[in-house]
Amino acid sequence: MAEIKEKICDYLFNVSDSSALNLAKNIGLTKARDINAVLIDMERQGDVYRQGTTPPIWHLTDK
């Protein structure tokens, strides 16, 4: 899980924002549900936040 978090942070640092599906595909996974639990956990920790569009767009925080 730590490896996936690191990949998410690296990708969002370079791209600035992404949907869960696009993010999953760009870090080597196939479906948004493969990454949603990790994104929600990271959101609780304050590492990422989502804009409430459908589907949500994920961003890194300034943390």
Rank of each mutant, 00 (worst) to 15 (best):
K5F: 05
I57P: 05
S18W: 04
G52D: 11
D34R: 02
L23I: 15
N36F: 05
T61G: 06
V15P: 02
H59K: 15
M42C: 01
D47T: 15
Q51V: 15
Q45D: 14
T61E: 05
E43V: 00
A32E: 14
Q45F: 02
G46C: 00
D41M: 04
R33H: 14
A32R: 05
N36A: 04
E43P: 01
E3G: 10
K31V: 02
A20C: 04
D41H: 01
F13H: 14
R44Y: 03
M42N: 06
L60W: 01
T53I: 01
D47F: 10
K7P: 00
V38Q: 08
K5W: 05
L12K: 00
V48T: 03
Y49A: 15
M42Q: 07
D34C: 00
N22Q: 14
T54Q: 13
I8T: 02
V38A: 15
H59A: 15
M1N: 03
R50C: 12
R44V: 07
N14H: 14
Q51M: 11
I57V: 11
W58I: 07
A24T: 08
E6R: 07
S16Y: 02
N14F: 06
A32C: 11
A24K: 03
E3D: 12
F13P: 10
P55E: 12
A32T: 12
Q51I: 14
C9G: 06
T61F: 01
V48A: 08
V48G: 02
A37L: 06
K5P: 05
L21P: 11
E43M: 01
L12D: 02
W58F: 09
N22H: 11
I40T: 12
D62E: 13
Y11G: 06
I35N: 06
E3W: 11
I35H: 03
V38G: 11
A37I: 02
T30P: 10
K7L: 06
D10Y: 05
L39H: 05
P56S: 03
K25G: 04
R33T: 15
A32H: 10
S18V: 02
I35L: 08
M1S: 12
D41S: 04
D47L: 15
R50T: 06
V15G: 07
A24H: 04
R44W: 02
A20I: 02
T61V: 10
R33F: 14
T30E: 15
I27A: 05
D10L: 03
A32F: 11
D10R: 13
A24Q: 10
L60V: 04
I8R: 07
L21N: 13
I4N: 08
K31N: 14
W58P: 06
L60D: 07
I27Q: 04
C9F: 14
A37K: 14
N36L: 08
A20W: 03
D47H: 11
A2R: 13
N26L: 06
L29Q: 12
Y49T: 14
R50H: 08
D41E: 15
A32V: 14
I40S: 14
G52E: 11
I35A: 08
W58T: 09
M42R: 03
A24C: 10
N14D: 08
E6A: 11
E43T: 00
S18Y: 02
K63Y: 02
I57E: 09
L29I: 12
L39T: 05
S19T: 09
L60N: 06
D34W: 00
K7A: 07
N14V: 08
L60R: 05
N36P: 04
K25L: 06
G28K: 09
I8V: 02
L29K: 04
Q45H: 12
K7R: 09
T54G: 08
E3Y: 08
L12I: 02
N26K: 12
I4D: 11
N26G: 13
E6V: 03
K63Q: 01
D34T: 02
A20G: 05
A20L: 06
Y49C: 14
G52H: 09
L21A: 15
G46W: 00
I8L: 00
I8A: 03
W58Y: 11
K63E: 09
L23Q: 00
E3Q: 07
M42G: 05
Q51G: 10
T53N: 11
Q45L: 04
V48I: 11
Y11D: 04
R33S: 15
S18I: 00
Y11T: 07
T61R: 08
A32G: 12
T61Q: 04
E43D: 02
C9K: 15
Y11H: 12
T61D: 08
R33N: 14
P55Q: 05
V15H: 15
L12P: 09
L39M: 08
K25Y: 03
L23N: 00
I27F: 08
P56D: 05
D62K: 13
L39Q: 09
L39N: 06
K25P: 00
R50K: 14
D34H: 03
A20S: 09
A20F: 08
F13N: 15
A24G: 04
A20D: 02
T61K: 11
L12Q: 04
V15Q: 08
E43S: 01
L21R: 12
G52T: 02
D41L: 00
R50P: 03
I8N: 04
L39D: 11
S16H: 11
N22Y: 06
Q45C: 12
L29S: 10
L21V: 12
